[in-house]
């Protein structure tokens, strides 16, 4: 059975059909990319998975079960974590606190026990910190552990956001343009981490990406969309050389000239 599936998903805003009966299937443990020109509806797919928007038709299936009726905050409990295109970190908190916030769904205390800060709460805090330190280690964030996120450079913020998603111990990770704004070196680091996540942690990744070299380097399978319609889904090389995809990216004439 497919790990994650989109069946005929559609959504429209006002009169604009942002997604029109899109289908795709993601297998357990693979890195799956969604590509397409700006405005094709890639981020909208993520926002629908996260339940920020309601689908007007179709359904998402996680291990065969529909997630389309879960509340936005329940999505995290299903093991789905995500990052954002323009970084949505908690800016006035330290890196460590951001990572610990990723542990929110593991919380077993309530406001009353926390007010008294009884022993289980204290132990839970210490466990959260242990986990956060593992991620700091994994992503080389030691130098920034106690700094406020707002003071960090863009590339590091992106890494922190990835770390926060990892702290949620997800089974499915959604990355929205993970390399945008990163330099070559940072992109290469990210490629390493992605393969580590796949090999060691067994996390399934769906990402939206514009950097074709990065997609080629890291991705198992690709879905290309344009104007809210799926163009083609398949093995990475197959999709990237597909004439329809090239046309969507480069325009009619350029393909002919090439």
């Amino acid at each position: 059975m497919a790990f994650f599936q989109a069946q005929d998903i559609s959504i429209s805003f006002g009169g604009v059909q942002a997604l029109n009966r899109v289908n795709f299937t993601v297998n357990q443990g693979e890195i799956f990319s969604i590509i397409g020109p700006n405005g094709a509806g890639k981020t909208t797919i993520f926002n629908c998975i996260n339940r920020f928007y309601d689908l007007t038709g179709g359904v998402f299936l996680l291990e065969g079960k529909s997630i389309s009726h879960a509340k936005p905050h329940d999505i995290a409990d299903l093991g789905i974590a995500r990052t954002f295109q323009n970084i949505e970190l908690f800016k006035n908190m330290t890196v460590l606190d951001n990572l610990i916030l990723g542990r929110h769904r593991k919380r077993r205390s309530n406001i009353f026990t926390e007010m008294l800060f009884i022993k289980p709460v204290r132990l839970q805090e210490i466990r959260s910190r242990e986990k956060a330190e593992e991620i700091i280690d994994f992503l080389d964030l030691e130098a920034h552990r106690d700094q406020l996120v707002v003071n960090l450079p863009y590339g590091v913020q992106k890494t922190v956001e990835l770390g926060r998603a990892l702290a949620m111990e997800p089974t499915l990770l959604l990355l929205d343009e993970p390399t945008s704004g990163l330099n070559m070196e940072e992109s290469e680091d990210l490629a390493f981490w992605l393969s580590d996540m796949k090999e060691e942690l067994g996390i399934t990744v769906i990402m939206v990406e514009h950097n074709m070299r990065f997609v080629k380097q890291t991705t198992d399978r690709v879905l290309a969309i344009d104007f809210g319609q799926a163009i083609v889904e398949g093995e990475t090389n197959e999709v990237l050389t597909n004439p329809d995809v090239m046309r969507a990216y480069l325009g009619e004439e350029n393909v002919c000239n090439a």
Partner: peptide, 30 residues
């Protein structure tokens, strides 16, 4: 009591809501 709340998950969830409601929701904060 306030300090205890702030140094545990509920307090962090409060601050998360202040800084980014959308990200807070994606973290599983109701």
């Amino acid at each position: 009591l306030a300090k205890n709340i702030l140094r545990s998950p509920t307090g962090r969830a409060f601050i998360a809501i202040r800084d980014s409601e959308i990200a807070a929701e994606a973290m599983g904060i109701d």
